[in-house]
Amino acid sequence: MKAAEPLPAPAIDAELSRWTIRLLSHMQIAQPYLAPELTLGELAAQLRTNTSWLSRVINAGCGKNFNDFINEYRVQEAEARLRDPQFRHYTLLAVALEAGFNSKSTFNRVFKKLRGITPGEVNRLE
């Protein structure tokens, strides 16, 4: 049996684009990032693909590594809650946990890295 020919570059680009759209749609609809223990393997299983392809989609299609990709969604979720008056009574830890972080220290570090301010400073911006 003859080995499959590698896809030409334009075909790979088209497949990568298709998978990037599929991934972003899944992130928006299913919100898998809310699970603190989410792994690349679990996300790949949800999308019915393998980890090496999903990693390539995230790296090339989204321009980030897996952790930065997931943490951006978590920070967006936390930021929305911090700005929403409905969540004003929540502690920073509660916001962190509901956004998918598994500790307050990770939440603070990642939030500061991605936004340049601490989570506690968000409320003061308004």
Rank of each mutant, 00 (worst) to 15 (best):
T20F: 00
T49S: 06
N108P: 06
Y33D: 00
K64T: 14
L92Y: 05
E121T: 13
G116E: 02
E126P: 11
I29F: 15
G63C: 10
R81G: 06
G120E: 04
H26K: 07
Y73I: 07
A94E: 14
E42R: 13
T20Q: 01
T20D: 00
I70G: 00
L43I: 01
Q31R: 15
F111S: 01
C62F: 06
P85K: 00
T106K: 13
A9R: 14
E72R: 15
N108Q: 14
E126S: 14
T39Q: 09
V75K: 02
P8M: 05
A94D: 13
S105G: 10
S25M: 15
V122R: 07
G116C: 04
E77M: 09
R109Y: 10
A30H: 14
D84S: 08
A99D: 03
D84R: 02
H26W: 06
L34V: 07
F107V: 00
L92H: 05
V75W: 03
A3G: 09
A3P: 11
F69S: 00
V110I: 08
T106Q: 12
P119V: 04
L16C: 01
N59Q: 14
N108E: 15
A14H: 07
R124N: 11
K2D: 11
G116H: 06
V110Q: 03
G120V: 00
M27N: 03
S103G: 11
A30E: 15
I70L: 08
N50M: 01
S52K: 12
A94M: 12
S52D: 13
P36A: 09
E5D: 14
I29Q: 15
L43K: 02
E42T: 13
